[in-house]
Structure formats: C-alpha cells, structure tokens
Amino acid sequence: MNKITTIKEVIKHIKNEDTIMIGGFMGNGAPPTLIDAVIEKGIKDITLISSDTATIDYKTGKLIRDKRVKKLYASHIGLNKETGRQMTDGELDVELVPQGTLVERIRAAGFGLGGILTTTGVGTRVEQDKQKLTVEGVEYLLETPLHADVALINAKRADKSGNLQYQGSMVNFNAMMAAAAKTTIVEVDEIVENGEMDPNLVVTPGVFVDHIVKRGENDE
C-alpha cells in the first residue's frame, strides 16, 4: 500500500463531528499543515484530544479561535485565553485531564487495554464519577481509553513504510496518538526510501501510520 499522499487527498479522511487527536505540546511537534488544512476545509463540531490548545493564533489554538471544536480533552489551557473564555461562557465543553493520565488513556486505546489504574487525581475533582479500585492496599482511579477517528501527528522523517523518527522534544504525544486512532496521518519534513532508515532507530513503527504527507510539497 502506498502511504505517501497529498494534503488534498488526505483531508478527505476527516469530516465534521470527528474525534481528532493532534500531537504536540504548546505547538512544539504539532503538524502545522494538517491543522491549516482542517481549518481550510471548514471541518467543524470536532471533539479534540490534545495536550493543550497552544496560543490563540498558533497550531491547535487556531481550531479553538475559529470555533471548530465542540468538546475538548486537554491537560492545560492556561496559555490560550480564548479556550478559557469559551469554556466559561459555555460555548466549549472542556474535560481537563492530568497530562500523565491523558497520555495513558490514549495509550490504552491504541494498545488494546480497557483502561489504566493511576493514583493521580485521587482526593481531587478528577476522581468524581470514576470507579476506584484498591490493589495491594493502594487506591487507584480507573481511567478509561480515549479513542479517535483520526490522529494528526508530526515527525521529522518517515520511510515509505511509515516508520517515524522525531526531532528534539517534538515526539511528546505523537507516538501514542499514532496508535490510538482509526486513521493516522503524519506530516513530515523528509521521506526516505525503505532501507534508508536504520530499523534500530525507529521510534514509531509504520504499522500505526496510514498516510504520510511531506511538509511544503503537497499544498496544492
């Protein structure tokens, strides 16, 4: 299967009311071209799962700014005042999830688990309406998987099989999101032939990746 495609083709996989995961942390490691394509196509009523909402005119912040998101799962929204305003005014439904729990819920969805147990959030508002389990004398919250229709992720380099390598701190949520969605689309700087990437140094195996677009080349 040829995974290499164009923005124009790949955007057909995303529709209104989809649950979309977008990688990155304060925009670092979020896929800029894919986010812009979602904006341009007018996709709306999104359920967005992301570490944060960056800042108002940057990366995932643009989706909030343009009111494309109806429900948000994130760990931190403090650096995007518009997200806070929409939440306070009842325009946006926000579920704040501790960051470590957020990535584990994504991992659980990708890796076939029914949930994870964590002590994070015990004794806080996070435990409300959640099942508690005691294991070896310690009380844990049962946190359930977060699935998605589409994951939009970002990497430095892909080979034609979709094996990925990242740069700097840009791997963050991308690696787990790649596994957790029905369709995973990655935006990269560079695509190499199979065999050119050392299999020992692959971070995300290509089995999780459905479509690859190269930044700057597939804009039309």
């Binding site: 944060d52 994130a74 760990s75 931190h76 929204i77 403090g78 650096l79 806070g84 939440m87 306070t88 926000v94 704040l96 501790p98 960051q99 470590g100 729990t101 994070t120 959030g121 806080t124 996070v126």
Partner: peptide
Amino acid sequence: VPGMGGAMD
C-alpha cells in the same frame, strides 16, 4: 481554569 498540566502527576 488553566488546568493541571503535569502537576497532579
């Protein structure tokens, strides 16, 4: 309501 980020963990 900035959110807890990684603080709870």
